[in-house]
Design a protein around this nucleic acid. Sequence first.
RNA 1: GCCCCCAUCGUCUAGAGGCCUAGGACACUUCCCUUUCACGGAGGCGACAGCGAUUCGAAUUCGCUUGGGGGUACCA
Length: 487
Amino acid sequence: MAEEVRVRIAPSPSGNLHIGTARTGLFNFLFAKKMGGKYVLRIEDTDAERTSQAYIDNIFDSLKALGLEWDEGPDVGGPYGPYTQSQRFDIYPKYAQKLVDAGFAYECYCTPEELEAEKEQSQKNKVAHVYSGRCRNLTDAEKEAFIKEGRKPAIRFDVQKAQKAFHDSNILTFKDLVKGELHQDMSLIGDFVIMKSNGTPTYNFAVVIDDMLMKMSHVIRGEDHISNTYKQILIYEALGEKAPEFGHLGMILAPDRSKLSKRHGATAVSEFVEKGYLIDALVNFVALLGWSPSDGEEIKSVDEIAKDFRIGEVSSSNSIFEYDKLNWMNSQYIKKLSLEELKERLKPFLAKYDLNSITDAQYSRMVEVTREPLTILSDITDAVSYFFGDDVEVDEETKAKVLDGEVAKKVLPDFIEKATGWDFTEENLHEKLEEFRGFYKEQGIKPKETMWAIRAAVTGRTRGADMCATLCILGKDKVIARCKKAL
RNA sequence: GCCCCCAUCGUCUAGAGGCCUAGGACACUUCCCUUUCACGGAGGCGACAGCGAUUCGAAUUCGCUUGGGGGUACCA
């Protein structure tokens, strides 16, 4: 029987769910779906100081919003829980002790100052910094002396010992799912700490114990973990366990090729949502960073992507997060939304307006005629401003270019007079305006200019929704009043 | 400093020795449609980082250089 595919997403709650973490989570999810495996959520909160409940909530909410529902996790439980590392603190020491007993780990009494000094020395000598291993062979008497001083030991993994026990050469190799064979000289890996002196595990140790106990078959993560992989493989070997398969994804970088951070704009999934990005568009976009569909069709649902997904075809290089394509994709997803759905999703971005001042029919029509150019939902706020309130704000350019011009002075009074007698239905206005335009066209005024004059007076700008619909939604009284005011 | 990873249009990518005078998408741009903006449609601009090697033939293989990224913690 083939081994069950089990993958996980393991965010550290030291911030809101990062877009990069979301992509890693997505790729794991896609892999699990494709392989018919299980998807596990584990919260890696071994560093209590940086953890907060608000972040945990944000991570849960964002992951759910993204549709990356987990089969096992802190909230839903599962056969290998608990799924929160801070609730597993009693597990790690046992395994650390096992390694000590087997001779693959030892107590280290070095102080931060001593370690720092070692490191500085290495740098001075221009050699790779590797822990000296001075605590490797401490006698009981020496240990006691340190304890008397008040020192508490950390536990270090003995890399040399593991190397000699399991490898012929000092080169450690593993086959990465996306990058192929990767190598590292083990003599350059210093003995690393697996248990801190405060009794909590370090990241590399907790991850191995958890992945092992949770029976992870594949570990797909960012390439910033490549160097950790060697250490983790060594731990698996020393524990006599089979390591999972590893796959390392390229990173997502900001346009300036640096790490994506706040100064580049949104970094958390929730921030993108607040800005008016549709979660489906975000997922689709992020899937295209490093992966491409076999049929070239880029707008795809998660289900479609999962069917077409092959981890070995994922790009091994970094990719840059550019808003242009995200924006385009978001606009595509907005277009696909039904009117009713769009009306609902737009509401948070219309909070500053009194939606009760218009009927639902008017709201519907308003959304219908303004939705076309939206790239993000929040664009609606500005797009719709002139439908609310009595007066309208006229921007300088429109005033100078249109309202103060000859055409407006000629067209507007005539429009006011004629429109007063018009029936304000879209159908009728369409007809009347066509006549109106035609009349001025014969006098050498372009249809465009005629309409601009009216539009500028009524909306304060030269661009916007369909004129007939706009006039109708506003109603005759407001239209005439605004035109008079403009003059 | 040391170690590792990566390298096709501005960006995301297709490409696994001849199908490539390198394809698609976004962006940019021209034209068309049109009561504005937009949408949509038809075009255009635009890349194999450099140098060597292997080969009849290289974007595709190898080496070096350069550039970018990551790691180098009792952070994760």
